[in-house]
Design a protein around this nucleic acid. Structure first.
Length: 279
DNA sequence: CACCAGGTCCGTT
DNA sequence: AACGGACATGGT
């Protein structure tokens, strides 16, 4: 068998290099927007939908490794066609806590994640913490997702709505979803039954999706960067760093989105990552 | 034992 | 329209 035939059959693995200034593996993955990654060998194996890549930052370079045919998918996933230098400078121009956050978190990018996967993950996220969310998502994929191999590594794809619609609430409780089990099954059945899930979908029609989860799906799946999801950490930032006095989250959202406009989503991620991980 | 975690639902004012 | 308790579960 020739070498050429070998690669044609198994697919070619390739690595691309990028300037790490505005693309850091740590900042992108640890900023709480995605839940399917695992630290290993100084970098991260990252799953999205049915795919796998390996991303690692060393010095001024970020290395992205994946199957050649998946490279366009992951360049889109990491939003690599957008200039984050301009976004970073806009944050610096705001001064105060935001400038400080951006300085520490300038490698953050807003990922472009698969819509159904994002819906499910953020249904799980409500009144929950990131390690538990990650664990539930991992179990969900291991038990309902199709087994695959990429980069010589065995993993499980994110399950389809059809796969998820066949499970029952007890199954979702068994992966640690708790009271959210009902929301997961309801969403799976709705999407499996033909409910559209695109940027025009009224997301709060899904059971268990309120304003915050809807904003996260809008931002992380549909790149609606004018959205500013407010969770407990952003409440803290609102009080401690912006001197806000409103008490309900809708008013905080309105405050931030008016202040930051089309930069809202980017700035929110700088602040979230900084408040939760870096301060 | 409380309180918290990338909140939302639902019944009561 | 606004408020507050309930909700699963594991970690501090």
């Amino acid at each position: 068998m020739s070498v050429g035939y070998f690669y044609a059959f198994f697919g070619e693995i390739m690595t691309r290099e990028y300037d790490s200034t505005y693309f850091s593996a740590d900042d992108c993955l640890l900023s709480g927007q995605c839940f399917r990654f695992q630290a290993e060998n100084g970098g991260y194996f990252v799953n999205s939908d049915d795919k796998l890549c390996f991303v690692r930052t060393a010095g001024d370079t970020t290395f992205l490794t994946c199957e050649e045919e998946d490279l366009p998918y992951f360049e889109n996933y990491f939003d690599l066609s957008v200039d984050y230098g301009e976004i970073y400078r806009a944050a610096i121009g705001q001064g105060g806590a935001l400038a400080q956050a951006a300085n520490r978190a300038k490698g953050v990018r807003i990922l472009r994640q698969a819509p159904f996967e994002t819906l499910v993950c953020f249904l799980l996220s409500q009144n929950n913490n990131i390690p538990r969310i990650k664990n539930s998502v991992r179990l969900l994929c291991e038990k309902l997702g199709r087994e695959r191999v990429c980069l010589g590594k065995r993993y499980f794809a994110f399950p389809s709505a059809a796969d998820m619609a066949e499970a029952d609430e007890d199954f979702y409780r068994s992966i640690g979803a708790g009271y959210r089990a009902r929301y997961l099954l309801s969403a799976a059945k709705a999407v499996h039954g033909g409910e559209i899930l695109d940027e025009n979908t009224p997301l709060t029609n899904f059971l268990g999706v309120g304003e915050k989860v809807a904003d996260c799906i809008s931002l992380f799946a549909f790149h609606r960067t004018e959205k500013f999801p407010v969770d407990t950490w952003m409440e803290k930032a609102y009080r401690e760093d912006f001197g806000g006095s409103a008490k309900n989250r809708s008013d905080m959202v309105a405050f931030f989105e008016k202040k930051f406009g089309a930069y809202s989503g980017y700035f929110q991620q700088y602040l979230f990552y900084y408040k939760r991980n870096l301060s």
